[in-house]
């Protein structure tokens, strides 16, 4: 039934369950499984009206956040690789942009047969609005979507 399953992973305990479900479904259906992590590109915008910091201080902060996000991405990759051991067709994909927008795109892409997402995904290092990511996905997804706790 499924040929391509996509799962959002962030290396946290919250996404472990989503990953487990996605891997199980991929095994049963013989589907390819893609793990996705999104480097949040909206930080510069989020601290937008910080007009007092010098360019260096501002960029220094953005680099600091970026480093944390990259560490998170590595943790996500490790989590994904451990969970998909034994599966034939897998890949880990690192995206950049607004996490909500990127997942909405995936949830509307014809090639996505199923998107598996934890309601807590990307909240480890995320902005407050990412708390409503699952709600937005549920409203906008045009492809099958599996939301987990």
């Amino acid at each position: 039934m499924y040929r391509q399953i996509v799962v959002a992973v962030d290396g946290s305990a919250a996404t472990a369950e989503a990953l487990e479900h996605a891997a199980h479904l991929a095994r049963r259906s013989g589907a390819a499984l893609t793990g996705v992590f999104v480097l949040d590109g909206n930080w510069a915008d989020f601290i937008g009206n910080d007009w007092q910091s010098s360019k260096g201080a501002r960029q220094g902060f953005l680099d600091y956040i970026r480093q944390e996000q990259e560490e998170q991405a590595e943790a996500a990759r490790g989590q994904f690789e451990a969970a998909v051991a034994g599966l034939e067709s897998t890949q880990f994909s690192l995206l950049a942009g607004d996490p909500t927008e990127e997942l909405v795109k995936l949830a509307s892409q014809p090639s996505t047969d199923l998107l598996v997402v934890s309601r807590q995904v990307f909240q480890v290092s995320g902005r407050p609005s990412l708390k409503s990511l699952a709600k937005t996905l549920a409203q906008k997804a045009t492809r099958p979507l599996l939301l987990l706790g």
């Binding site: 007009w51 201080a57 480890v124 995320g126």
Partner: peptide
């Protein structure tokens, strides 16, 4: 002073992005 101070302090106290 709000955002500027948060931006300036975060790396020094190892604050997480969230």
């Amino acid at each position: 002073c709000g955002v500027s101070a948060a931006v300036a302090t975060s790396p020094a106290v190892e604050a997480k992005a969230s």
